[in-house]
């Protein structure tokens, strides 16, 4: 099962990299970033349903984040690359502040409605299960929310730290990966992309801190 899961992760990352080599990606780089939010969400939920283990999903989040940063090099120019980075940052802010809490609420609410619907269709079958879950629900939800929140944060944080290393590997194997031909980046220009990734390291960590402060403000008002 773990092998299948790793293979699924690999295929997804490969598909992303292959897609980034196409001219369509260069044209629709911003739209792709927005679409990625939903693709990631669906993939994560599907894999979690199959594996029943969130620890196995955590490296996927991290690997996909790294692949996302890597494929952003496929933007038509350096300016497009920087714009796509800031767009990615804005998407990340929206995801943390609005989308993720919404998904968590839906995950909590949808099973209740499904249970109610099942109770109407087949009376008496869901009641025993509901009574059991109600007692555990409060305890479980708090710990699970904490775990989910910290898991997401740790995956993003690790991806930010590791991406410069990934780009160094890419620079070393640039001839084999045919970066110059496929991404239209000159070999000498790769150092600018690398410098940018290193420079944003600290500022991205600061941004993460502010995101959580804003998160607090939104929920308090």
């Amino acid at each position: 099962m773990t092998d299948m899961h790793t293979a699924a992760q690999l295929v997804f990352c490969l598909a992303l990299i292959e897609f980034s080599y196409t001219p369509i990606f260069g044209q629709y780089v911003y739209q792709t970033q927005v679409a990625m939010i939903f693709i990631k969400m669906i993939l994560s939920e599907v894999l979690e349903a199959f594996t029943k283990d969130t620890l196995l999903i955590a490296p996927l989040d991290c690997a996909v984040s790294m692949t996302e940063m890597f494929i952003s090099l496929g933007a038509d120019s350096f300016i497009d690359f920087i714009i796509s980075f800031f767009l990615g940052l804005a998407i990340d802010v929206c995801e943390r502040l609005y989308i993720d809490p919404l998904v968590r609420k839906l995950e909590a609410v949808v099973p209740r409605y499904v249970a109610k619907l099942t109770e109407r269709v087949r009376p008496g079958q869901v009641l025993v299960q509901q009574e059991k879950t109600k007692e555990q629900e409060k305890e479980e939800s708090v710990v699970e929310n904490i775990l989910d929140d910290v898991k997401g944060y740790s995956a993003d944080f690790l991806a930010i730290l590791v991406t410069p290393v990934v780009i160094v590997v890419m620079m070393v194997y640039r001839t084999e990966l045919e970066i110059s031909a496929l991404y239209g980046i000159r070999d000498t220009d790769l150092i600018f992309y690398q410098t940018f990734q290193v420079l944003i390291l600290l500022s991205t960590v600061v941004v993460q801190v502010f995101i959580h402060q804003i998160q607090g403000m939104i929920e308090l008002t």
Binding site: L10, P59, L60, L158, V162, L177
Partner: peptide, 15 residues
Amino acid sequence: MFMASFSIMMLAFGV
């Protein structure tokens, strides 16, 4: 996490 995610990336590069 580092080992798993980084190895996925390296595997992807290899393929």
